[in-house]
């Protein structure tokens, strides 16, 4: 067995008898360490790096034509929508009011980029393409971590874009009588936008992990996001208790409830859903 090399071009050349290029070698018995390691054993004992796994997940992110189209459209939608909305809204007196449009944009601006993530994660289960991945690299924890790195990268991109647009467009659209206030507290603005962007991407991640079907997950996500955006305007006192963006909204000083309690209920709900989705994925059968 050591030094085993199967015949090259076996199918293409179809040898009549399958001539042996090498002789079989004895194999170690079950549960016993091999006396002498063969070349395939050396290769089998060397795990590919985590970076290689991350690279594969990034390749999958842009693996199809529709993925590539969405990856081009996504940043344009994010930046275009943010610039358009922020330049339309007239600035108010307080810093919180000046930040409010940017916080609201966190709910919808990255929707296309989130769709790419949903396609990647839910699509892997829908098309069972997670199976060949896990056959080659069986650790589900590593697989999820590699996907988490992709999610992290998308989150950082979205957050950076939204922070940049907020700091560039808001001063231009602020009414001369109000005075631009966000420059006085840049750390706070960045914190709110990073936290809000993270909450939004986590909501997309949870949907993609809970629904192992890309079309179904996208339908749910595209249904839930507008409903949440409308609810946050129509019934903010009710919605804030389950709003995934409640921590960011509260940090921005925009919470309709004068208490940190909605932050705790929101965190409990969404962290609970995240734990549930992680459990569901870890137990999911690759039939």
């Amino acid at each position: 067995m050591s030094g085993y090399q199967p015949p090259h071009g076996a199918m293409a050349q179809a040898p009549a008898t399958g001539a042996p290029p090498m002789s079989p070698q004895p194999m170690p018995a079950v549960g016993q360490p091999p006396a002498q390691r063969s070349p395939w054993q050396y290769r089998a004992e060397r795990r590919a790096s985590f970076l290689a796994q991350v690279r594969v997940e990034f390749r999958k992110l842009a693996g199809t034509i529709s993925d590539r189209i969405l990856l081009i459209i996504g940043p344009l939608v994010l930046i275009g929508l943010s610039v358009w909305m922020l330049s339309l809204v007239e600035r108010m007196e307080s810093a919180a009011d000046q930040l409010a449009p940017a916080v609201w944009l966190l709910r919808i601006a990255a929707i296309v980029l989130h769709a790419v993530l949903i396609k990647l994660i839910a699509g892997e289960w829908q098309h069972r393409s997670a199976q060949p991945t896990l056959l080659v690299q069986p650790s589900r924890a590593r697989y999820f971590l590699a996907q988490a790195v992709v999610v992290l990268a998308v989150w950082l991109f979205c957050a950076a874009a939204q922070i940049a647009v907020t700091f560039i467009v808001t001063p231009m659209s602020t009414a001369p009588t109000s005075g631009y206030l966000l420059d006085y507290r840049p750390g706070w603005v960045i914190g709110v936008l990073m936290l809000g962007s993270l909450s939004a991407v986590m909501a997309a991640l949870i949907v993609s992990m809970l629904i192992p079907n890309a079309a179904g997950a996208l339908a749910v996500y595209f249904g839930v996001v507008p409903v949440m955006a409308i609810m946050s305007g129509v019934a903010p006192e009710v919605f804030v208790w389950i709003d995934p963006l409640a921590p960011a909204v509260t940090l921005a000083g925009l919470s309709p409830v004068d208490s940190p309690a909605p932050v705790f209920t929101s965190l409990a709900l969404w962290l609970g859903l995240f734990a549930l989705s992680g459990w569901a994925v870890s137990r999911r059968d690759l039939a």
Partner: peptide
Amino acid sequence: TAWPNPAHVAGVLLDASATHPGR
């Protein structure tokens, strides 16, 4: 699953349709 790189131990074909159709 205890082999760090099990693809070098066994080549496995379980389901030919378990591949993303868009790739």
